[in-house]
Computed example of a mutant assay.
Amino acid sequence: MTEPVLTGRGLVKRYGHVVAMDNTDFDLNPREVLAVVGDNGAGKSTLIKTLAGAVIPDAGDIRLDGKVVRFHGPLDARQHGIETVYQDLALAPSQDIATNLFLGREKRRPGVLGSIFRMLDAKSMRTEASKIMAELGIGITSAQQTVETLSGGQRQGVAVARAAAFGTRVVIMDEPTAALGVAESAKVLELIGKIRDRGLAVVLISHNMPHVFEIADRIHVHRLGRRVALVSPKTHGMTQVVGLLTGALEIDADGNVVEVSEAVTTGLS
Rank of each mutant, 00 (worst) to 15 (best):
L89H: 11
L89N: 09
A90H: 13
L91K: 15
L91G: 08
L91R: 15
S94F: 13
Q95E: 15
Q95Y: 10
Q95S: 12
D96L: 08
D96S: 13
I97W: 04
I97T: 08
I97E: 14
I97S: 11
A98V: 09
A98G: 12
T99R: 15
T99V: 06
N100P: 13
L101H: 10
L103Y: 11
G104I: 10
R105M: 12
E106R: 15
K107W: 06
K107R: 14
R108V: 06
P110G: 14
P110L: 12
P110C: 11
P110N: 15
G111R: 08
V112H: 03
V112W: 10
L113E: 14
G114I: 11
S115L: 10
S115K: 14
S115A: 11
I116Y: 02
I116R: 02
R118W: 05
M119E: 13
L120Q: 09
D121H: 10
D121G: 06
A122V: 07
K123Y: 03
S124I: 05
S124C: 06
S124M: 09
S124L: 04
M125A: 08
M125Y: 07
T127V: 11
T127C: 05
T127A: 06
A129C: 07
A129M: 07
S130H: 12
S130W: 08
K131H: 09
I132C: 08
M133C: 13
M133Q: 07
A134R: 14
A134C: 12
A134M: 13
E135D: 11
G137H: 12
G137R: 15
G139R: 15
S142W: 04
A143H: 06
A143D: 10
Q144K: 15
Q144E: 15
Q145C: 11
Q145M: 13
T146Y: 05
V147N: 12
V147L: 07
E148F: 03
E148V: 07
E148W: 09
T149P: 02
L150Y: 04
L150F: 05
L150W: 07
S151K: 08
G152M: 09
G152L: 14
G152F: 04
Q154E: 06
Q154V: 09
R155E: 08
R155L: 02
R155K: 09
Q156V: 01
G157R: 04
V158F: 01
V158S: 06
V158A: 03
V160T: 03
A161Q: 03
A161K: 02
A163P: 00
A163R: 02
A164I: 00
A164W: 00
A165P: 03
F166V: 02
G167N: 00
R169Y: 01
V170D: 00
V170S: 01
V171M: 01
V171H: 01
V171I: 02
M173L: 02
D174Q: 03
E175G: 02
E175M: 02
E175D: 06
P176C: 04
P176F: 00
T177G: 10
A178S: 13
S185D: 14
S185G: 14
A186D: 15
V188P: 09
V188I: 11
L189T: 05
E190T: 06
L191E: 09
L191P: 04
I192T: 12
G193P: 11
G193F: 02
I195V: 11
I195Y: 04
